[in-house]
Design a protein around this nucleic acid. Structure first.
Lengths: 186, 186
DNA sequence: AAATATACTTACTAATAAGTAAATTCCAAA
DNA sequence: TTTGGAATTTACTTATTAGTAAGTATATTT
């Protein structure tokens, strides 16, 4: 794998998560990396190919985290906390998550990014409801209603939590983070 | 008030809520309204002036709703439901709310839009926590923790609920809507 | 009737966008 | 030592962007 290619993807993801998909250009990337505009097009012929790769990589990272958690036999509470730590870190770095960044731009994105984003969102919600369901059965969690609905509520708390923290200029994510966990305590 | 000016603001808001701030242009507005680009600049010299006006109008509409609810002596449950209906309607119209649309673009917006957006977000959260606090004291609602934190959770559910519904291509907002209300039932 | 203000259009500018074709540099294998 | 491919730059195109200066038609006021 090319180092330049990796740097482009890393910077592209940063730009999407700080400024949004439609607010960054290949120039932003090339000037920051000290290369020319055309060099970015060499690795990613179109902006949509770059966007699609970034979302795919994000999903791979999520899958790696899931596998890691399973292999270490973490209980549901720890698994949820590990997942939530990703958002705590995002907030500290003043970044949104990729889903919360690209979601509002969805109607301006091509089918390839859209479907990857949908796939990733469905996968996260599926994983989260599974954790919640198992945790509920084991008595680790306590909540009303269907685990699927609960997963949607918790996930939307995290996605918009980052956005609202940015608007409100809150550097800590504690309020939402703690409230979600308190809600789930038996 | 000029009809053209109102049409520009209405269309501008629609564009922000469907495609995002950085994805719409004065051309989009002028061609749709059958006027020239410069005519839009006549009413709103800069895009930031248009954006700021749109956010201010949104906040005015919110304040009008609040006053209306208070004058009619609605109980807390009905007040919350009325507020949530705005989001149900947004979802039906395939639009995000203005806060969820502009939040991710915040770093690309000028100070004027930013501060208006912050003011509006703070005002909504303040109102919502007040409703929750009063409803809790009257026994209309039941929830754990501070009303302020609860307001943040519920509001983030609505903001990201619209975004996730768009990504997942869900035309109904029922799951989130119902789960929020069920959670608050005594 | 003359002056003024409102609501635009015409006709532009300068900057930036994504994207491309062709040339070039550089390194490794044959 | 030549050949070939990978990684880039050069130099460009076409389209779109926000924004502006100057002009015009229409209505309103003086």
């Amino acid at each position: 794998m090319s180092v330049t290619r990796e740097k482009i993807m890393e910077l592209g993801e940063d730009l999407i998560r700080t400024r949004g998909y439609n607010a960054f250009s290949y120039q932003d990337i090339s000037s920051e990396l000290g290369i020319k505009n055309a060099a970015v097009h060499y690795y990613f012929p179109s902006k949509e190919s770059l966007g699609t790769s970034i979302v795919k990589t994000n999903m791979q990272r999520f899958e790696e985290m899931v596998e890691n958690l399973q292999s270490r036999n973490f209980d549901e509470w720890s698994q949820l906390e590990t997942f939530m730590k990703i958002y705590v870190k995002s907030n500290r770095e003043l970044k949104l998550c990729i889903i919360g960044s690209l979601g509002p731009d969805l109607n301006t994105l091509n089918e390839s990014i859209r479907s990857e984003l949908k796939k990733m969102t469905e996968r996260i919600l599926q994983w989260l409801s599974c954790i919640l369901k198992n945790g509920l059965e084991k008595g680790i969690f306590s909540f009303k209603g269907d685990p699927k609905d609960r997963a949607l509520l918790i996930f939307s708390n995290m996605v918009a939590g980052l956005q609202l923290a940015r608007i409100l200029e809150k550097t800590d994510f504690k309020a939402i983070h703690q409230a979600i966990l308190d809600d789930l305590k038996p």
